[in-house]
């Protein structure tokens, strides 16, 4: 059934048992910490993503928000995939996720890059839900830029 492609088990798992949820202070007081709050104006979903970084490594990505299963699971996957990664690597993953979501179901995701993020391939076929999946990722991008680790010039999202 079509619906199973959208609501993959992985997505429902992340939704029901989110990883790393809740906004946290940086463990290392020397870290730059910044956050961004994004809202989906069509449905009122909200997410706040906070990034703690020393400028190279994203020590923590914490988040809080309210929204549908897709946006909440997406935040959980974002946390899991990018926390502890180098900024360059993280933005490569970010780019791959944005590309997957903008692909209208035509992009084959690379599991080595996207991990549990591949489960969102089905979401890309539902234009009304793409924004839900991207909401935390867009907030992450702004938060990272505010923490001083902007996307490298060749990355466009």
């Amino acid at each position: 059934m079509q619906l199973d492609q959208l609501y993959q088990e992985i997505i429902l798992d992340h939704y029901k048992r989110p990883h790393g949820r809740g906004l946290r202070d940086a463990e290392d007081p020397a870290d730059q910490v910044a956050e961004a709050h994004h809202v989906n104006p069509t449905c009122g979903d909200e997410v706040t993503v906070r990034v703690a970084t020393d400028g190279d490594v994203l020590h923590d990505i914490s988040y809080d928000g309210m929204g549908c299963s897709i946006s909440q699971a997406s935040a959980s996957v974002l946390h899991e995939l990018l926390r502890g990664r180098g900024a360059g690597e993280a933005f490569a993953v970010h780019e791959a996720f944005v590309e997957l979501m903008s692909g209208r179901g035509q992009v084959t995701p690379d599991e080595d890059v996207l991990g549990d993020g591949v489960a969102f391939a089905g979401v890309a076929r539902y234009p009304a839900r793409v924004k839900c999946a991207l909401l935390p990722w867009m907030a992450f991008k702004d938060a990272a830029a505010r923490a001083g680790v902007g996307a490298s010039p060749e990355v466009k999202a």
Partner: peptide
């Protein structure tokens, strides 16, 4: 259950 999810299942 978020209304988006309710609406999506109903749409199916």
């Amino acid at each position: 259950i978020h209304p988006h999810d309710v609406g999506q299942v109903l749409d199916s």
